[in-house]
Design a protein around this nucleic acid. Structure first.
Lengths: 303, 303
DNA sequence: GGTATTCATGAATAATACTCATAACAGGAA
DNA sequence: TTCCTGTTATGAGTATTATTCATGAATACC
């Protein structure tokens, strides 16, 4: 019944003093405002303004409406601006799902750059799913999924943001530390430190040891990267990491990285999103930020 | 641009789950809602909802709009109710001007009854004017004026709320205390205690002494009624009050009231208001309360 | 008094909101 | 699959509402 249009009229009258000027300010005729308010007065059965000489003066009821206008209109305006920002992809909440531990490390770097570039976009980082990352994406629980595994789906689009090799890290005091690459036989004699995920998701098994029909003598799930590196450093086992992450780690730990076999394991990191969301600016921006960072990392390790 | 209509639609969708039910709740067709929102989406260039299977789900932008709706709609609704109350004269601010000291005493009684009857109406009591009471009325500084003097004006309506006589009060030890009425000659020999107003507004001069071409030997302006009564009681002078006020006073002070001359001075108390305001319920109610109280007072003094 | 300014009003027009009919789509059941 | 049901989307036509235009009435100012 009371519409924001009416509130604008009351406010404009208050600001401009006369109906005629208020009408100009609103790019309408004086008549329009007069009609509008007389409509409202009829509906509410209350006088909102009265003629005072040749000007108008708000009645008590009019003052009440004015106060409402001053309360409501800024909220509406703010909302309109926010929605415009959403429309242009300048604003939103980007809910990111992560499916692998190294991805998580990589993400933190991307996010810190992204947050600077897009101050109006908030980020939710979700790494505990009820279901799989893919389902999270399709159920709208997350907007993008960072994953090393591409699972084709006709509603989902994938962007490749990074290519990298996996390496094995060993203590620099380890007998293997003098070698350039590690064979399946050599690796199978070591204790393998790995992230706590099902074995079938461990690339080192899928893409290296399984082919040789070997298994590590021992496997140990470790929660944090830091702990994994320390354990490796002190010879409690070996671990498998992306080369760029290994590079970082060697700055702080006495470790040696070894190529995996003669051909190495090549991986790609993907960002998955729902196809319609490829249009959203801040998602495009996020993907780009990811690619840029990956390139920089490649350069820094001399590739 | 965003109108409350739109907010209602978004809210109804949220409450009812489906567009069809939301449409029923708003007594509109599903089509209308669909059109309305697609209009808004075009204007704001942002999707507000998306089909999810056969239902709709709000997008992030839609959620923003919903939050705005939940913030704004209650305010609007509250305002509509308040304005309705104003329209029915159940609510408002009654600004009362008072032009004479006895009026003030009388008013306090009326107001206390009125406030009980009309809990939604607030009262402002204004007894210091920049200008005259009449001007205050015409300038909208006050809504009603309580006055014993009727000043005809074509924009102002007068209601008579009380008729009364003026009496002279003297100490019961005064030599005049045995008389029934006081003559101009007798009064002229006394010190007259009066309220601090210009002499031309003193009825006892205008309507009694002036006719006999006499003046009191001494005149003393006194601010408060209580002080005036005490001074009278202790023989420092005599004072002139409405009979009903004199009646009250004699309960607490050793005083005698004397009729003024053989014919007495008859006064009326008016409530003046702007003519259009005669329609306002709470003003009608106020006048009625005043009349009722005056009648009760007349009865109590046995008339 | 005449003039300029302002608001009110009625009629005509323009814009918009709404409905109706129907299409398109999804989910469940046979 | 195919049909059935319940949902939203869409185009066209109708109804309603908003706006303008032209004019009248009131008022303030010179």
């Amino acid at each position: 019944m009371i519409e924001n249009k009416h509130l604008k009229i009351i406010q404009a009258l208050h600001i401009n003093g006369t109906l005629t000027e208020a009408a100009n300010a609103l790019f309408l005729t004086q008549s329009a405002l007069s009609h509008q308010i007389s409509y409202l007065e009829k509906k509410l059965e209350v006088k909102l303004w009265e003629r005072e000489g040749r000007n108008l003066r708000l009645t008590q009821a009019g003052e009440v409406l004015l106060k409402t206008a001053q309360q409501v209109l800024p909220v509406i305006e703010q909302t309109e601006q926010t929605l415009k920002a959403y429309g242009e992809g300048r604003q939103g909440i980007l809910r990111i799902g992560v499916e692998c531990h190294p991805c998580y490390e990589w993400l933190l770097g991307v996010i810190s750059i992204f947050l600077e570039k897009m101050p109006d976009v908030d980020i939710d980082l979700i790494n505990k799913f009820q279901f799989s990352g893919m389902e999270g994406l399709l159920n709208q629980h997350i907007d993008i999924l960072v994953t090393p595994d591409m699972e084709i789906h006709d509603k989902v689009h994938y962007d490749t943001v990074a290519e990298y090799e996996l390496v094995v890290l060993v203590s620099d005091k380890h007998t293997l530390a003098k070698k350039e690459f590690i064979t399946a036989q050599e690796l199978a004699k070591e204790t393998l430190l790995h992230f706590p995920v099902p074995n079938e998701r461990l690339d080192i098994l899928n893409h290296f040891l399984n082919a040789a029909k070997l298994k590590p003598v021992q496997m140990k799930g470790v929660e944090s990267i830091e702990l994994m590196l320390q354990m490796t450093e002190f010879g409690r086992g070996v671990c498998v990491l992306p080369e760029w992450l290994a590079e970082e780690s060697m700055k702080k730990h006495a470790l040696k990285s070894l190529q995996i076999g003669t051909k190495s394991i090549h991986k790609e990191l993907y960002i998955a999103m729902r196809k319609p969301d490829t249009e959203i600016k801040y998602i495009q921006e996020f993907v780009q930020t990811g690619k840029d960072l990956a390139n920089k990392k490649l350069e820094s390790i001399g590739k």
